[in-house]
């Protein structure tokens, strides 16, 4: 149904999203400065960096909440279907390009039930099935079928995140960790090809954090690429296949978790130490990594 925009670059088949020269200025402040990286299919990519490094800004550009000042964001959804994300309106990024996101401060529809939350996520297909409301008001059977399919999908997700028993409770009634999982399930109900998670492990206890890792891995194994911002190094090192490090809006490192962990620039940026102390800090990091691996 879609065409590749004329100026969209031809991406290698394994690359899902290519971010090129992304720059975002707010007045005089350069929040993101010439950042380029790839998000590959079948991989979990982590975007890390100290506070204020511009991670969330990159996220907001990819998911359409900001229009980048400079840069090109090409997403290749299928072989013959590419999108330039910076040209799409925010709701089209989710619907057409298949990019779903969660938020740092959870944004559920608190007064609606879990089931309703997951049905709102399927708004696009349901809206088409209801003939843009007209057929639905008249009570056509085709809409009933579509709604049942949507409920089945929501049920499957609720079972998967272990919240099926609370399907008819208000989302705001859930404990924090469950709300995080529900938000991920809601994003997944939009049938994305790229799932962007803004600090999914924040505020989770170790058990919940481990459950989250399992969930994210299973999502990746189903062919949905995951891009996540995370502060919790144990999560990053354990589950990500590819790590991009930002500091003061610039990319300072990009590679496998092991490579990034060894990068002195990353160590310096993360811990704010002089070069002489790097060796000491490296040992420290090693220790943490071992603990997290254990």
């Amino acid at each position: 149904m879609t065409v590749r925009p004329l100026d969209a670059p031809e991406l290698p088949p394994e690359v899902l999203l290519r971010v090129e020269h992304l720059t975002m200025r707010f007045g005089g402040l350069v929040a993101v400065d010439d950042v380029s990286f790839d998000v590959r299919r079948d991989e979990i990519t982590a975007l890390i960096g100290p506070n204020g490094a511009g991670k969330t800004t990159v996220f907001n550009c990819i998911t359409g909440f900001y229009k980048p000042t400079v840069g090109r964001l090409t997403l290749r959804r299928a072989e013959d279907e590419s999108w330039l994300l910076e040209r799409l309106r925010d709701h089209e990024i989710s619907r057409a390009a298949g990019v779903a996101r969660t938020f740092q401060n959870i944004r559920l529809f608190g007064g609606m039930t879990l089931l309703e939350n997951l049905l709102v996520a399927q708004h696009g297909p349901l809206m088409r099935a209801s003939g843009f409301t007209l057929l639905g008001v008249l009570g056509f059977a085709s809409y009933g079928r579509a709604e049942r399919a949507a409920i089945d999908k929501a049920t499957a997700w609720l079972e998967r995140i272990g919240l099926i028993d609370r399907a008819d409770d208000a989302a705001a009634d859930l404990p924090y960790g469950d709300q995080r999982r529900l938000e991920i399930a809601r994003a997944m109900c939009t049938d994305p090809v790229l799932l962007c998670l803004d600090e999914p492990a924040a505020g989770l206890n170790p058990r919940e954090s481990a459950e989250l890792n399992t969930l994210l891995r299973s999502i990746r194994n189903e062919g949905v690429a995951v891009l996540l911002i995370e502060h919790d190094m144990s999560v990053v090192m354990e589950i990500s296949d590819h790590v991009v490090v930002l500091d003061y809006g610039k990319k300072i490192s990009d590679g496998s978790p092991a490579a990034v962990r060894e990068d002195p620039k990353v160590i310096a940026a993360y811990l704010g130490v002089e070069d002489e102390e790097v060796a000491k800090v490296e040992q420290e990091i090693e220790r943490i990594a071992e603990e997290s691996g254990a």
Binding site: F65, E92, R107, G110, V120, G124, R186, T190
Partner: peptide
């Protein structure tokens, strides 16, 4: 409930 979440879900 939340307009920003709506936009992120393609509404």
């Amino acid at each position: 409930e939340d307009e920003i979440a709506c936009r992120s879900l393609g509404v």
